[in-house]
Design a binder for these strands. Structure first.
Lengths: 138, 138
DNA sequence: TGTCCATTTGCAACATTGTTGCATAAAAAG
DNA sequence: CTTTTTATGCAACAATGTTGCAAATGGACA
């Protein structure tokens, strides 16, 4: 998606299209996988955009708030952010490579799942993380 | 499990049975659910046992290392520790209450799962976290 | 295009969670 | 009870994230 389209997207939603937000969403969309705060920071630096740490945290929060990205908790106790499939709204499983730590959204993967919870528990959502090796690490 | 039995357990495995380790494992076993570092610290304080923060971190690491407990990453970017079902060794799903944050091991729950990964990905392990409301929060 | 105002940004300081190095204390073996 | 190995406590550090506030900026409207 082009930067211009991203600006258009913000405009349509009556959201302020600041450079920080446009660039950050651009990075997330281009990545095609879930990125940590640090990875986003590096990617922005590569594009010549340098944001304050705090601003980036707030920008990512903003994108999640506006459902333009979603947040998933990694194994290393850091948040990961992804712009993939956030338009669909439905929770999808994730894949995490045990070697390189890469996390990818498996948007197209539909696990068939049958669960029965103990008495008194109310089901709301299931989060499935599959761990293994990605193509680059096999 | 009694403290004496826990000491016996350590002795059998030729592990040093220090008060810190015995009390910590005792807390985890009695809890019946996954506890954060802080929750363990509080539980130990209630028992009159006060450990240094660092010692507790190392003790928990030790228990995980010796397969007497296992570690799972919570939604709030903190590790949770549980002594439930660690003897079995097989990964089991977890339940997390969206209201009170309680995490419980669903040792007896066997989800039927069929997944197909994209080309080039190698499956190793699946982690299933079900979110919802626990009996106390409905 | 210029002005105004609510919102965003950057900076500094702080909070939480976890880790490392090292001297001292304690467990277990003989 | 002595010795040896290992665990503990303390201090300092590291990574990740948050809060308060003054200054800068986006966007609406004249």
């Amino acid at each position: 998606m082009l930067q211009m389209d991203i600006m258009q997207l913000f405009k349509e939603r009556r959201l302020r299209a600041t450079p920080a937000r446009v660039s950050t969403l651009d990075v997330l969309l281009a990545a095609g996988r879930a990125l940590s705060h640090h990875e986003v920071e590096d990617a922005l630096a590569d594009k010549g955009e340098r944001l304050d740490r705090v601003t980036l945290y707030r920008t990512l929060d903003f994108l999640v708030e506006e459902s333009l990205a979603h947040r998933l908790s990694g194994e290393d106790r850091t948040w990961r952010f992804s712009a993939q499939g956030s338009h669909t709204g439905h929770a999808h499983p994730h894949f995490r490579c045990e070697r390189c730590g890469m996390t990818r959204c498996l948007s197209d993967l539909k696990p068939a799942m049958v669960v029965g919870l103990p008495e008194g528990y109310v089901f709301q959502q299931a989060e499935l993380t599959i761990r293994g090796l990605c193509p680059g690490c096999t």
